[in-house]
Each structure stands twice: as structure tokens, then as C-alpha cells.
């Protein structure tokens, strides 16, 4: 029963897929093909990301993370958050487990959010790809707007939540 509840969302998507397949066979087959493709992407990128997370969790002491990215890390913390997020590989949903370990290690909340923002939009490999597809002017303009953007968004978001809510999120990360 617990298993069904955990996989409830997945089961719903399976049902939608089956319905789509009966209504429109061609679109349904295409959906399965795209799912297979995304699954391959996940199977390729996610295992090393989680192994790195495990290693980070075990080897890097909390004090070190606090010193470099914690409450009083200042500009260095922001810089590291942007850098780590930009160097990442993989789709956005891979960023959240990393963020959870960061919180466990005492990384400041705004830096966690900056990291997520950077992962979502300023990834270096993607930037090179964007340049070749849409031109240097497009890619560089976007990057220059995005970097201050994600930092500002992180601070606005933090101002919207109370200290208690942040503590709650940190406590949840501890258990994940």
C-alpha cells in the first residue's frame, strides 16, 4: 500500500500514457520513444551525480562547507554557488538532491538558491552550445543578465519565507 502511494504520481502518468496510446497510437508511440530517450539521459547522468553526493556527504566536513558557503561566507559563497552550479551536468531535477546535501552541510540558504539558479540556466557546456546555435551576442547577453538575475531572485525568495520555514526545509533535507 505504501509503495502504491509513493508511486501514485508515476502510476497516473502510466495511465495517461495508455490513454494517449489508445486515442492516438502515433502520438503515444512518440511519447514512449521520448520517454525512453529521457530515461537513458537519466540513467547516464544521475548515478555519478548521486555517487558524488554520497562522497561529498561523507568526506567534506560540515565546518569546511560552512566556512566557504555558510552564513558568513559573503561574496566568496555567492561566487562558489554560481561556479558550482554552472559547472554542473544534467537536467534541473538533478540539482535538488545536491541542494539537499548542501543544506545538510550548513550552506547558507541564499547560496543554495543561487546554486539552483546557476544549475538551471548558466551551465558552461550549455553556454557553448547556445553560442553555436543562437550566436555569441544572444548567449552572452543572456548570461550577463542571468548571473545578477539568479542572485537577485535568490534574495527575493529568501525574503518571502520566514526563518521557521527555512529551518523546516533544512530539517527535511536532513532526512532525505
Amino acid at each position: 500500500m505504501k509503495l502504491i502511494k509513493r508511486y501514485q504520481f508515476f502510476l497516473i502518468t502510466v495511465i495517461i500514457m495508455l490513454v494517449l496510446l489508445t486515442i492516438n497510437r502515433q502520438t503515444g508511440i512518440k511519447a514512449i520513444r521520448i520517454t525512453g530517450y529521457s530515461f537513458k539521459e537519466m540513467a547516464l547522468v544521475i548515478p555519478p551525480v548521486f555517487v558524488l553526493l554520497g562522497l561529498l556527504d561523507v568526506w567534506v566536513p560540515r565546518e569546511v562547507m560552512i566556512r566557504y558557503m555558510g552564513e558568513s561566507s559573503g561574496l566568496l559563497g555567492i561566487f562558489l554557488a554560481v561556479l558550482l552550479g554552472s559547472a554542473a551536468a544534467g537536467p534541473l531535477y538533478g540539482a535538488f538532491p545536491v541542494a539537499a546535501v548542501f543544506m545538510k552541510k550548513g550552506v547558507k540558504f541564499t547560496n543554495v538558491l543561487i546554486f539552483i539558479g546557476a544549475w538551471s540556466t548558466t551551465k558552461i557546456p550549455m553556454f557553448l552550445f547556445e553560442m553555436s546555435a543562437l550566436g555569441a551576442r544572444f548567449a552572452i547577453t543572456r548570461l550577463l543578465v542571468d548571473i545578477p538575475g539568479i542572485i537577485i531572485i535568490a534574495y527575493i525568495l529568501t525574503s518571502f519565507v520566514t526563518k521557521d520555514e527555512i529551518n523546516e526545509i533544512y530539517k527535511k533535507a536532513e532526512m532525505l
Binding site: 502518468t13 495517461i16 511519447a31 520513444r33 521520448i34 520517454t35 537519466m42
Partner: peptide, 9 residues
């Protein structure tokens, strides 16, 4: 898994 299915659909 759910997200990946949703993306495909």
C-alpha cells in the same frame, strides 16, 4: 520516473 513520463507525454 513520473517526471520523465510526463516529459515524454
Amino acid at each position: 520516473l513520473g517526471v520523465i513520463m510526463l516529459v515524454g507525454i
